[in-house]
Amino acid sequence: MKSIITICFLFTTVCLWSQGKKDYPVDTSFSIYGSWVKEKKKFPHITIAEPALTPAIKVEQDIVYRSVGNRQLLLDIYRPAKAKKKSPAVLMIFGGGWRSGDKTHNRAMAIKLAGQGYVAVSADYRLSPEAAFPAAVHDLKAAVQWLKQHARQYNIDIHKIATLGCSAGGQLASLIGNTNGNPFFEDSTVKQRYTSDVHAVVNIDGTLAFKHPESAEGAVAAQWLGGTWEQSPATWTNAAPLTHIHPQSPPFLFVNSSIPRFHAGRDDMIKKMDMWGIYHETKTFPDTPHTFWFFNPWFNEMMDTIVSYLDKVFKLKK
């Protein structure tokens, strides 16, 4: 564990040092190490999940998938080294309150997914210090389109693409799924050959509604949404995945901690999904911190749940 702490500390230090080297604002306040330090006070038994990277998994890092002016957005790809057929792909979206975090936060989950035959893709996107809503959605939908465009190169089945996100990333993963075909959430300045439609969603503790009896979103959401609820009610409503659920929405897996505020809108969405016959699963881990997905003892069971769900929905999809 000491070596893990040292590595995480050095990584955080490098990120803080490199902040001045960026030509766009960077918030490094959210990190795996910082979450571990915070949560181990209440959960002293937790350890950071670090699955082994084996030769069976091929990794390609820092691939440019989108340019916005001089800004290059990057993604990392983890995939089976010797896949015999096209593989489903999972676009992984990190959390951090729409203002912090980076694609490396998904490394552990990406390794596990690639080990189970999936092409796991972790993408950076523009955060609130750099660009307000809906910029992040435009970026991530562009990432889906990039995956389809490069499907042959990475052996991807373009008809089996999922989004998976944690916390703020879970909100984004859900919004992307529920807005398949919605032109507002596409960057109209760029003509695309492929759609940004996805076929399954995994929401890990991401809110489904910003203004809701169960929600506790405030200043952090307001920074991303360009104002408070009182100032921008239409934006707060439009950014909520619950607003856009419809009969053709993809299947969902909700993976939740024991903290109710991160389930906001979930039960209302499930009622609508049941009414329209949309497949869904829910897995709640009792007595867990919000950032449980980073840590043992929950990591392996969480990944087993995710892989089982993806195997099921993609096996059913022809």
Rank of each mutant, 00 (worst) to 15 (best):
R79M: 14
A81G: 07
A81N: 12
A81C: 02
K82C: 00
K82F: 01
A83E: 04
A83S: 14
A83D: 04
K85R: 09
K85V: 03
K86Y: 05
K86V: 00
S87D: 02
S87G: 00
P88Y: 09
V90G: 05
L91G: 03
L91A: 05
M92C: 13
M92Q: 09
M92Y: 01
M92G: 01
I93N: 06
G95N: 10
G96L: 09
G97P: 11
R99T: 12
S100R: 11
S100E: 09
G101R: 13
G101K: 13
D102N: 14
K103W: 07
K103R: 15
K103P: 09
H105W: 00
R107P: 01
R107N: 05
A108V: 03
A108M: 09
A108L: 09
M109K: 12
M109Q: 15
M109I: 03
A110K: 01
I111Q: 04
L113S: 03
L113Y: 11
G117F: 03
G117A: 05
A120T: 02
A120H: 08
V121G: 10
A123H: 06
D124I: 00
D124T: 06
Y125M: 04
R126P: 07
L127P: 06
S128F: 13
S128W: 14
P129E: 13
A131P: 11
A131T: 06
A132S: 15
A132D: 11
A132C: 09
A132Q: 15
F133N: 08
P134S: 12
A136D: 13
V137R: 07
D139V: 00
L140F: 08
L140C: 03
K141R: 15
K141E: 08
K141W: 06
V144W: 06
V144T: 14
W146N: 05
W146I: 02
L147M: 15
L147N: 08
K148N: 08
H150D: 02
A151Y: 07
Q153S: 02
Q153R: 11
Y154A: 02
Y154W: 10
N155A: 02
N155F: 03
N155M: 02
I156G: 03
I156F: 07
I156H: 04
D157G: 03
D157R: 05
D157W: 06
I158G: 06
H159I: 00
H159E: 13
K160G: 01
K160C: 06
I161L: 14
I161F: 14
I161D: 12
A162P: 12
T163K: 03
T163D: 04
T163V: 04
L164G: 01
G165Y: 12
G165F: 13
G165P: 09
C166F: 15
A168M: 11
A168I: 11
A168G: 09
G169F: 10
G169T: 05
G169R: 08
G169M: 07
G169W: 08
G169C: 10
G170T: 05
G170I: 02
